[in-house]
Design a protein around this nucleic acid. Structure first.
Lengths: 241, 241
DNA sequence: CGCGACATTGAAGTCACTCAAGTAAAGTGG
DNA sequence: CCACTTTACTTGAGTGACTTCAATGTCGCG
């Protein structure tokens, strides 16, 4: 179950054999969430660290009057609660967008491993920096990109993140968000997301149906979305045919 | 010069005496930037880590067609290039918004210190997590808050960040951004920032003139901006009279 | 079959943008 | 010390991208 974590960490920084062995030796319990739901954070043990191994989740933030902003998308390989692990405090609100598999590792075991393997500390720290990098790029999207650019950008980003952990199927990949959730992620209204998706279909750039996206022309989509790639810090830019 | 860094790290996580001594013993060279300028990143040595000790800076990102998004504001005590230190790669574009004082510490010295002081690693890691937290809150602002809420929110945030390092003067604090830079930070147009500031003045909530802000009613402003405070992870919420 | 969730469409409205002047303040040079 | 330039701020008018509201359509499922 931790192979995925190893793969994920190595996609950003190299590890050596001892590091890998240490990670693979961590005790893991796997948790299953059967389907979509909000407010998942409370169900995660506060003395374990959790890695998403399957499915889609998101972090979100609700304003007092009900407005919701989706802050980030979590895909297989993402560590869910490093912030709590390092800084303590509460976990940010979390929602399952599909059935999930979550690996839970006791904090204590990871602490022990980090004492002997400084490179892993650095690799984990890196993943938080990359999350931040993505978060900043979303800021650019919402702040400066038009609706169609935002959607195009998000699709490029998600595609590459999934491809980096092998969860794509050629140019097709799962994206189990409703249009209204896309709207909350992109800072748009549901109606406008709908029209924007139609425009992208009309341009023959994508198909999107029942939670599956297909990209017909990644390069054109990337150009349209002013997508630039470096911010994902992938060591081997998984670029598809 | 590193007292400020100590203060900053302690504002989020406790350190012990040995940690403080180690930090204060780091060799430091101080760099002065005489005034406002973009594209500062290139002038910072790639084998030193830099801490802003005085003045205001910002990270930004330009899109190919010239649109600029300001990604974050850096104030005294902020570490500038932890990402490079941990993850390598390029520093994100940086601009000086005022004359700056920057402390430069050799990477090697800090690496050496971190080997003996794991708590400092954790404290530094924390600062990157808090930066991310702020970045996410900006995402919420731009995604879901109205123009006046955004401005109010930014003012509350900046006030508390400055107060945490003692760079406020009662309810007054420096904010050396032009309205056009505020616009680039908030995802608004210059014209609209102007009108929004006028509205805030009309409501008797703020004064803002030649780079100095005064808050007449922090609580009212916080309420207007849907500002919630926890995301700054301050151990001692510096709340002013 | 009928319900519920999601997607789609149309129409009307608005918040914030763009364009275009005009004013104010501060620096520059002769 | 005063024209001249530059930079920032302010104001008005018109526009447009996106929103809101309100139906209607479609699909999967018990």
């Amino acid at each position: 179950m931790t192979e995925l974590l190893v793969a994920r960490l190595q996609s950003h920084l190299p590890l050596d054999q001892a590091d890998r062995t240490g990670l693979l030796g961590l005790p893991v319990r796997v948790l299953r969430i059967p389907g979509r739901r909000s407010d998942l954070a409370g169900t995660l043990a506060r003395d374990h660290i959790h890695v998403l191994v399957d499915g889609f989740a998101c972090r979100y933030r609700d304003l007092p009057d009900g407005r919701r902003q989706i802050i980030s998308l979590l895909v297989a390989g993402d560590v869910i609660d490093l912030r709590r692990f390092v800084l303590g405090g509460e976990l940010s609100p979390l929602a399952a967008l599909s059935p999930l598999g979550i690996a839970a590792i006791p904090d204590a075991s990871l602490f022990a491993l980090l004492e002997t393997a400084p490179r892993i500390t650095r690799a984990l720290w890196s993943t938080t920096l990359i999350e931040e990098s993505i978060s900043r790029e979303w800021l650019v999207s919402i702040g400066k990109r038009s609706a169609i650019e935002r959607v195009a950008h998000l699709l490029c980003e998600t595609y590459l993140r999934l491809a980096a952990v092998g969860r794509n199927d050629g140019h097709r990949f799962p994206l189990p968000l409703t249009q209204s959730e896309l709207a909350d992620a992109l800072g748009l209204s549901t109606v406008h997301v709908n029209r924007t998706l139609q425009e992208l279909r009309r341009l023959n750039l994508i198909a999107f149906h029942s939670g599956i996206v297909e990209l017909f022309d990644f390069d054109a989509l990337a150009q349209l979305g002013l997508f630039s790639l470096q911010y994902l810090h992938l060591r081997v830019p998984a670029r598809p045919r």
